[in-house]
Simulated assay, not measured.
Amino acid sequence: MSETSLNMNYEPEVIVDTDTLSREDWLSYRKIGIGGSDVAAIMGISPFATIRDLYNDKLGIEPLIEEESNWVAKEVGHRLEDLVAEIFAKKTGLTVFPVRKMFRHPLYPFMLADVDFFIIFPDGSYGILECKTCNYNARTKWEDGGIPDHYVLQVRHYLSVMNMEKAYIACLYGNNENEFIVRPIERDMMEEEEIIAQEEYFWKKYVEKQAEPPYNGKPDLILASIRKYGGYADKDLPEIEIPMHHSVDLEKYLILSEEKSQLEKRKKEIEAMQRELSVPFVEQLGASCKAVLSDGVRRYRITYNPTRRTQIGKDAMEKLKVQHPDIFEEYTKTTESRTFRVKKEAA
């Protein structure tokens, strides 16, 4: 698909009025296509989900994000959308308004858009405003004019569905209007073609054919996804034979394990030396938590702060399980972690 092959003469279709939808119905409508926040998972750069997670969500196998997961941050972001839009309008002088509808691309009906706000520009044209919030430390992801990549994909998807040329992303990271970031995004037809191609391949190759896509994305997310759908470990299952061509990767794994072992050994040596050097200072501090040393040129501040945890010991936990099984069952949760190791043996 070349840049000139995109048909630019279209208007988005309205699927449903979202203002009256329940959350359950809204989630159901999202399953009939690909939304802006889904694109990063397809492209393998999502910080939250893999392409397999997205596939399972679209087929109704497993929700993409559990309702309890990080619900406070999501709720804060939702509640502050209007405030972010208000600050943007005040800072830019542009007119901003919501349209509570879900839109669909008429040429690629698997592409959906649920846009936060729209903008009226002075020349009478329309654009998109995407409202974000983040904590103070996460503001560094926006430094030097940058925008987190998954947000860029989201907005480019919206521009394509709505057939608009410009959007802004506004992000509030503090509690006043100066702790506010505004970034413009111009439509880029070459990038848009790539996004459409990847979305179309995902939808037609995997979702419509109900064929699981291969994993892509960040290793930690992939491993978490595999554990999520794989169920609990079963030591009674027979040994699996791995194809011979994977031996190269296992050799690399073992080399990295040896490098890690050497680094950890050196780390332990350094920590032991630091503990030895700390002894006289800890002795002088006693029950105090801070100290200062000044030699006339430099000033050193020392802290020795406590970290306290209240927990139930292993023996007490066993007693609780026996004596009060109902309480134990209500307040404990079984989790599973698995350790991957490689050991080389003679054939």
Rank of each mutant, 00 (worst) to 15 (best):
E186Y: 14
K141G: 01
R156I: 07
V182P: 06
E208F: 05
M190S: 14
V182N: 07
L107R: 11
S160D: 12
I147K: 00
M164Y: 11
A211M: 13
S125L: 09
G127D: 04
E194I: 13
A113C: 10
E200D: 13
W142R: 04
M111C: 11
L172G: 01
G124M: 04
E192I: 13
D123V: 06
F202N: 00
P184K: 07
G124E: 05
V182M: 15
N135R: 13
E186C: 10
R139A: 11
V161W: 04
K204E: 14
R183F: 06
Y126G: 02
M111G: 05
C134T: 15
F118Y: 14
P122I: 09
Y201F: 14
M162Y: 02
K141E: 13
T133H: 02
E193A: 13
Q154C: 07
G124D: 10
M189G: 05
I196F: 06
V155K: 00
M189I: 14
E186D: 14
K132A: 01
D114W: 01
V155N: 06
D116Q: 08
H105W: 03
K166T: 13
M189W: 12
E165Q: 15
C131E: 09
A197Y: 12
E191F: 08
Q154N: 12
A138T: 14
R183I: 05
I195C: 04
Y168P: 03
V161K: 06
A197Q: 13
E208I: 09
T133K: 01
I120Y: 11
V155T: 10
R187T: 06
M111E: 11
D114H: 06
P109A: 08
A197E: 15
D188I: 07
E165G: 15
D116M: 07
V155E: 02
V152G: 00
E186K: 12
Q154Y: 03
D149Y: 01
K141Y: 12
G145N: 00
E177N: 13
V155S: 01
G146R: 00
G174W: 04
I196P: 02
G145L: 02
Y206G: 01
F118K: 03
Y126M: 13
M111W: 08
D144I: 03
C171N: 11
M162K: 07
T133M: 03
G127K: 04
F118G: 02
E200H: 12
S125G: 14
F117H: 12
E177A: 14
M189F: 14
A197H: 12
A138N: 14
R139N: 09
F117D: 05
D116I: 09
W203P: 03
L159N: 05
H105K: 08
D116L: 02
